[in-house]
């Protein structure tokens, strides 16, 4: 059973291969909705917005908020500060960590219910489990950053995860959705594959921030492989990436 909902400003898709019910999928979507209610900086009623307005003291943070802050701190140390949820204006924006964290939790919810074959996807980041309905590992295409109707690589994931950080490209111009202006960037996309979506997601974010050197960051992290595409359409992969790649015939 497969369903998609628009939550946290992005499509969230859940496919469960094992026999299941619509209620089960809706339970997981509801989880994503609570994450959005808590962490969306776009919602003035969210916990994070209240924190940023100084309406909640640290001792009053919810358990989930504390967990995300603690993880952000750990990731900050691991990347020596490349990961920072505090913005220059002093407000907190944990969105760079929440997506992977939420997908990981959603997958855990499904495993706890006994499901072994499924995937959870939010905005192009995916955690898989087991196999697809064909009985085979999940085949995941990597979108062409220059044409979102095309795929330029395919990886085979068996209970593995993939996260892609990138910019949205229109034609030859790189469009920055935040500023609405063209920005010239060294790289347009980096996909990170590993066993855990939270790790893949966090490092994909850090790597993308580094530009062309980002692929080297992934090369140094055991258990993660990466595939980076630059503004000229040249892809660079980490030395172990091929083990995930579907051999095209």
């Amino acid at each position: 059973m497969k369903e998609t909902r628009l939550i946290m400003g992005m499509p969230v898709t859940i496919e469960v291969v094992d026999p299941t019910s619509a209620a089960t999928l809706e339970m997981v979507f509801d989880y994503f909705r609570t994450v959005d209610e808590r962490f969306s900086t776009y919602k003035s009623t969210s916990e994070i917005s209240k924190i940023n307005r100084g309406e909640i003291m640290e001792s009053e943070y919810s358990r989930e908020m504390r967990e995300v802050f603690a993880l952000a701190e750990e990731m900050k140390i691991r990347t020596d500060g490349y990961f920072e949820i505090r913005t220059p204006t002093g407000s907190y924006d944990p969105s760079g960590i929440v997506k992977g964290w939420a997908i990981r939790k959603a997958a855990k919810l499904l495993r706890e219910q006994g499901y072994q074959n499924f995937y959870v996807e939010a905005g192009g980041d995916i955690q898989t489990a087991g196999h697809s309905k064909n009985g085979e590992p999940w085949k995941v295409g990597i979108r062409n950053p220059f044409n979102d109707t095309e795929i330029i690589n395919t990886v085979i994931l068996s209970s593995a995860a993939i996260a892609t950080s990138g910019t949205y490209i229109r034609g030859r111009h790189i469009y920055n959705p935040k500023t609405g202006r063209e920005a010239s960037n060294e790289i347009v996309s980096i996909s990170v594959v590993g066993t855990d979506i939270y790790e893949a997601d966090s490092y994909a974010t850090a790597a993308f921030a580094m530009g062309r050197e980002g692929i080297n960051l992934i090369e140094t992290i055991p258990g993660l492989e990466g595939y980076m595409i630059d503004a000229n359409g040249i892809a660079t992969e980490t030395s172990g990436f091929e083990k995930y790649v579907l051999e095209s015939i």
């Binding site: 905005g123 995916i126 990597i142 062409n144």
Partner: peptide
């Protein structure tokens, strides 16, 4: 089965 990519809507 699935496609991974940075999409316009992954603003979060």
């Amino acid at each position: 089965d699935i496609v991974s990519g940075a999409t316009l809507t992954s603003e979060a």
